[in-house]
Amino acid sequence: MRVYEVMFIVAPNTEADVIDSLVTQLSDVATHQGARVTNVHRMGLRRLAYPIQKFNEAHYIVLTIEGSGAEIAEIERRMRVVDAIIRYLTIRIDEDLKRADKLKKQRVARAAASGGHARSRRGASSGGNAPYVESNDDEEDE
């Protein structure tokens, strides 16, 4: 199972319902091929850092897709055909997320180890260490 982030940029003169239909259309393509659209993130109308096709702003939409990878080719082909989509970018994020997860686990383990070490050395005074680690975790999740 691979996780992809498909970002596509829609021309600013496109109407809202056309954008909605594009989103559903592309999601349908993915689901038809057995993939799952886990998240649709509309970043809204944003200024472009440089003009694309003489547009200075555009709508940004990000789809998070879980699938085999075969559906990405079809989605990209569809996006290439639609004139309203002026740019698209697909990235695979499952490996990055896995690595991030690993790093986080390592950090938590290290914090726990050093907390335990400090407790054994300093005794009761470092009792405040464990809650500190936990509060850190909460921040990460937000």
Binding site: A49, Y50, Y60, R87, L89
Partner: peptide, 11 residues
């Protein structure tokens, strides 16, 4: 580099 391709940052 990804942000540049998505026109979020300038080249």
């Amino acid at each position: 580099k990804r942000a540049r391709n998505a026109a979020l940052l300038p080249f």
